[in-house]
């Protein structure tokens, strides 16, 4: 029973190799709204399963070396894979998987379940938003692959701005909460393990740099596209703004 719980939890709050199933499940959800919902809900279900079954509390106080290796490897591995990805949906899934894996590093710290769920949500929100933007891009361009047409900043300025801000949020840019969570997670690592945690930050920087380069720069040579409405942009901006305010709140209360 215990093994089954760990397998299910590892699938929903992903670590490698079960993260493959997590990604497959999200990719197979019908439509971008369903995918966004799945990426928000699955990690929460995984955490609830761990907490209510008592498996999380049963972990010994202090860090478990095996779990630490698996979590860090998953975060590094998926961040590395995101660097070569130009499909927006895939990029969103891989980056979210990388971030969510870091939640496992908070084991053994006797944290309040609500805090753990907030941490998982902080990684899921940019992923969910990015999946929505990818869906909107797909509606307009027939696909959300950035390798074919560059220069979307000129033709879709409002949608590009939201995609850019979401990509920054996904890669733990201050003042979004992920930045402060990453600080907390890396601080929890033993001194010699800190470079491993920081490698994730470097790979995210690489992934987001390549992503923005493909998204924003170049001369767009495709058909004329309809940008996001002003109301939609304000709504997206409001969600991201509230997320950033959450970051300030998180940071202020350490």
């Amino acid at each position: 029973m215990n093994t089954l719980i760990w397998i299910m939890a590892g699938t929903l709050l992903p670590w490698f190799p079960l993260s493959w199933i997590f990604n497959k499940l999200i990719a197979s959800a019908p439509g971008f709204w369903a995918q966004a919902l799945a990426i928000l809900v699955f990690p929460q279900l995984g955490l609830l399963l761990l907490i209510h079954s008592g498996a999380w509390q049963a972990l010994p106080v202090g860090p478990d070396p095996d779990l630490r290796v698996v979590a860090l490897f998953t975060a590094v591995f998926y961040a590395f894979r995101a660097a070569s990805t130009r499909e927006v949906q895939v990029w969103a899934r891989l980056m979210t998987t990388s971030g969510l894996a870091l939640t496992w590093l908070l084991h053994g710290q006797n944290l309040d379940p609500l805090i753990l769920q907030s941490v998982a949500l902080s990684w899921s929100i940019p992923g969910a938003l990015m999946l929505v933007w990818a869906g909107l891009l797909k509606q307009r361009m027939g696909g959300a692959y950035l390798g074919l047409t560059g220069g979307l900043a000129t033709v879709l300025p409002r949608l590009s701005a939201l995609v850019t801000l979401t990509a920054l949020a996904a890669s733990a840019t201050p003042i979004f909460p992920n930045f402060f969570i990453l600080l907390h997670v890396v601080k929890a690592l033993p001194l010699l393990w800190i470079p491993g945690g920081l490698l994730v930050l470097l790979l995210w920087g690489w992934a987001v740099g390549r992503f923005l380069q493909d998204l924003l720069f170049g001369i767009y040579r495709g058909e004329l596209l309809e940008d996001l409405t002003v109301g939609g942009t304000w709504l997206g901006g409001l969600v991201l703004g509230l997320f950033a305010v959450g970051g300030i709140f998180w940071g202020a209360h350490g």
């Binding site: 220069g151 470079p195 470097l202 920087g205 740099g209 390549r210 923005l212 924003l216 720069f217 001369i219």
Partner: peptide, 22 residues
Amino acid sequence: TNRPAAGRYAFWTQITYRAGDL
């Protein structure tokens, strides 16, 4: 943003800075 070179070199700067952040 119309100049791919601007994006490329901005990226070089960003990634070197990130490496220095570590």
